[in-house]
Amino acid sequence: MKSPASLMRAPLRRNNPVTVQVLGICSALAVTTSLTTALTMCAALSVVLCAASTIISALRHHIPNSTRLIIQITIIASLVIVVDLLLKAYVYDISVRLSVFVSLIVTNCLVLGRAEAFAMKQPVGRSLLDAMGNSAGYSLVLIIVASIRELGGSGSLMGYAILPLASEGGWFEPLSFLLKAPSAFFIIGLLVWLGHRRDDADSVELPDHDSHLVITQAQEGRQRP
């Protein structure tokens, strides 16, 4: 059994939810054109993930097996709606830019994946730690990608100009390609490479491509048409 410290640390790099477990990629790519939206998204996801893991772990002895997934989705969806409503109420401009991606946390495999794979079997404290670790790992990737894209694509960070733009008398010619969708794929691909290189022997743990397939199989075993 992993120590609490490694529960927090492992998801940062060696078992990073985005670059190694391939969970929750949709939002990692879509909201990273600027650091502000990425940070908001990280906060939203962290709140939902921690709350969902804690609640599901606390209820794990009371959740019936057969309606397990529906209950998990209901809990997650309710939390997402509340977070979405809060964002709309307090940071309206950013929530408009995040468009539907906050709502899509519901189907973010990361949340459901951790709920199903960890919180359903482990006590509350450990589930919360695991959720915090995974939130941090997810946020780390988002922040790196968003920093590269915003700095290179518009010469600013969180809307504050860092590199003076050529169009405003400076020297920096923004690489607008970085703001387009394909660049996000390239950056994540390179991050995967980077993460792999550094760890060498440590990462014998195979990339868990199918961690959400586990859910599916579980679901499949249950469903009888």
Binding site: L59, H62, I63, P64, T67, I70, I71, T74, I75, A77, S78
Partner: peptide, 9 residues
């Protein structure tokens, strides 16, 4: 159990 969770949510 299901109804309780649904109601609370």
């Amino acid at each position: 159990a299901t109804a309780t969770v649904a109601g609370l949510c």
